[in-house]
Design a protein around this nucleic acid. Structure first.
Lengths: 148, 148
DNA sequence: AATACAATGATATTCACTTTCAAGCCATCA
DNA sequence: TGATGGCTTGAAAGTGAATATCATTGTATT
């Protein structure tokens, strides 16, 4: 067991007891699966993953658990405009997204140069920045090769 | 009539005849309304706006026209994660978005410092960048005051 | 163990987007 | 001009992901 993951679990438990909510088997399993993925995911992906292992977890439960993780500050919602709500582990490094307009592939990478400028601009406008998302759209390397 | 808008209309007409599509009254009205707004909009906003003036324009027609504008390269889709698909006039200056997590207000502002970084990012990742979206979330000035 | 109440999960609902299809309109050709 | 073919329209129906419902089950506390 990774030490960071253990900390996140403790954070989640603390959140639950503070709010008078309960630690259930399902929430534990979903959190494990969520932390086990080192990239953004969405409800159905987690649902199918867990469904394969534990046939007793419902779609609605995964949905509610992810929102709960977000409320607890251990997950972050990401929307890339493909109709799905994605979630990624919060607190990690910032992620930027490269979305291919041709094949739809989403590549994630880390970068921080742009972020600083924007956050500063926002502050000048009296806006307290809580999160920043940068999304680049274009044609990925594979699709460029395919097209010649 | 603004000269830029006139050019866009000609561009659209050219696109239509190239594709064997037809110039209709509805498309003309929707394009006028779209160009008349100097900010991003969404289907229902345009629909209601036009509905007030011309009771004969349907929801589906507005929807199809906006997609057509995007295909013609005169509109760009913007998704801010609130469940709505927004459209803005393409070819204008880049827009960044400030979304308030409290009241949901979307503030748009212009900024050009980012443009420089695009080419560099593209080279490094083998990715041809077609568009860049930057979205900041946080608490807007009004909500900060309200909260003390 | 009993109690109170939160959680679950199958199902139903919502909401925006998208498609369908019969009727109407536009551009072209004789 | 008038007819023809096919694109367009708009009301209505369909789609899919997100969200709500509700009876049942599970959890934590007394």
């Amino acid at each position: 067991m990774n030490q960071t993951k253990q900390k996140v679990k403790e954070q989640f438990h603390l959140f639950l007891s503070k709010k008078g909510l309960k630690a259930t088997l399902q929430r534990s399993l979903i959190l494990d699966a969520f932390l086990g993925l080192d990239r953004s995911t969405h409800i159905d992906e987690l649902y199918l993953l867990l469904r394969g292992r534990h046939s007793n977890i419902g779609h609605a439960t995964v949905y509610r658990a992810l929102r709960l993780f977000a409320a607890a500050g251990i997950a972050r919602e990401v929307n890339l405009g493909d109709g799905l709500t994605r979630y990624e582990v919060a607190g990690g490094k910032r992620r930027d997204y490269l979305v291919c307009n041709d094949c739809g592939t989403v590549t994630e990478f880390e970068n921080s140069t742009i972020a600083r400028h924007q956050a500063e601009l926002a502050r000048n406008l009296g806006f307290t920045v809580q999160s920043l998302k940068i999304e680049l759209r274009g044609i990925c390397g594979n699709c460029q090769e395919r097209q010649g």
